[in-house]
Measured scan of single mutants.
Amino acid sequence: SKGEELFTGVVPILVELDGDVNGHKFSVSGEGEGDATYGKLTLKFICTTGKLPVPWPTLVTTLSYGVQCFSRYPDHMKQHDFFKSAMPEGYVQERTIFFKDDGNYKTRAEVKFEGDTLVNRIELKGIDFKEDGNILGHKLEYNYNSHNVYIMADKQKNGIKVNFKIRHNIEDGSVQLADHYQQNTPIGDGPVLLPDNHYLSTQSALSKDPNEKRDHMVLLEFVTAAGITHGMDELYK
C-alpha cells in the first residue's frame, strides 16, 4: 500500500491521552519512536497531572497497542496490513475493555500522521470500578505478559474488528483478565486493505527511568503479524 511507504525508516511517535476513571481525571503524554521494519516501539509516557489513578499496565493496550501500524508484517502478509494502508489520513480506533469482576474502559483514538510524526490521540472513560479493586486499589504488578491480538475484516465499515484477552499479573500471584473489543475505521476515503483473519504477536517490557521524578512508564515492545501461511505457489519458487 502507499501508506506502507511512510514506515520504511524510524518514525517519531506522539501520544496524548485524556482519561476519566470513576471521576478521577488524568492526562498522559508520551513520545518515542517506531520502526515497522522490526516491529519495534520505544516509548516513554508521563502522567502530566500528577499521580496516575490507575496502574500503568492497564493503559498499555490504549497507548502502544494503539499504534499497531508499527507491527512488522512479513512480505507474504503485507496485503493484510490494514493499519499502514489507512495512512497518512489514519484511522479511528474504538475499544471497550472489560476488566473481569470490575469496571470497564471505553476508548476512542485517532491515529494519524501530523507532518512526519505518527500521533495517537485518545479519550478514555472508565466506569463501575471498585475503589478497593485491583485497578483503583493499585494491586497489579508492574510488568506485562505476551499476547496474541486477533484481527478480522469488517467489510460493512471498511475497517477491521479486533479482539483479545489481556492477563494482568496481580501482586498476590493471581491474574486480572481484561477482555478487549476493538473496531478500526479509516478517516480518509481512499482504498484500504481488508485482511484475511490473522493475529499480531506482541511482547512488551515495562521499565522506569531512574532520572524521572514524575509518574511515568518506559515501554519497549515488539509486534509481529502472523497466522497466514505462504501460498503453495510461494513454496515452490
Rank of each mutant, 00 (worst) to 15 (best):
206 L>Q: 02
86 A>P: 04
80 H>D: 06
125 K>N: 15
3 G>S: 13
27 S>I: 05
157 K>Q: 09
109 A>T: 01
169 N>K: 11
25 K>T: 06
225 A>D: 02
226 A>D: 10
65 Y>C: 00
29 S>F: 09
201 S>I: 07
87 M>K: 00
208 K>R: 08
97 I>F: 00
86 A>S: 13
234 E>A: 07
166 I>F: 02
213 K>Q: 04
62 T>I: 02
120 N>D: 02
57 P>S: 08
209 D>G: 01
38 Y>C: 14
141 E>G: 09
177 L>P: 07
113 F>S: 01
48 T>P: 02
41 L>R: 03
190 G>S: 12
62 T>N: 01
200 L>P: 00
234 E>G: 12
49 T>S: 10
76 H>R: 09
2 K>R: 13
204 S>A: 09
88 P>A: 03
89 E>A: 07
177 L>V: 15
57 P>L: 02
144 Y>D: 04
94 E>D: 07
31 E>K: 13
190 G>C: 12
134 N>S: 09
132 D>G: 09
174 S>R: 13
64 S>L: 01
58 T>I: 02
36 A>V: 10
177 L>I: 15
9 G>R: 09
193 L>Q: 10
172 D>G: 13
186 P>S: 13
21 V>E: 00
151 I>F: 02
41 L>Q: 01
208 K>E: 05
159 G>R: 10
229 T>I: 07
12 P>S: 01
106 K>T: 08
8 T>I: 10
75 D>E: 11
147 H>N: 12
96 T>I: 14
58 T>P: 00
235 L>Q: 13
25 K>M: 06
115 G>D: 08
131 E>G: 07
63 L>V: 09
105 Y>C: 02
173 G>S: 05
83 F>L: 07
35 D>K: 03
4 E>K: 11
15 V>F: 02
81 D>N: 05
143 N>Y: 06
176 Q>R: 03
107 T>A: 06
137 G>W: 05
148 N>H: 10
164 F>I: 06
105 Y>F: 15
144 Y>L: 15
172 D>H: 08
54 V>A: 01
150 Y>D: 07
178 A>T: 07
219 L>Q: 01
214 R>C: 06
165 K>R: 13
224 T>S: 14
190 G>D: 07
16 E>A: 07
196 D>E: 10
10 V>M: 08
155 K>Q: 09
29 S>T: 14
116 D>V: 07
170 I>S: 15
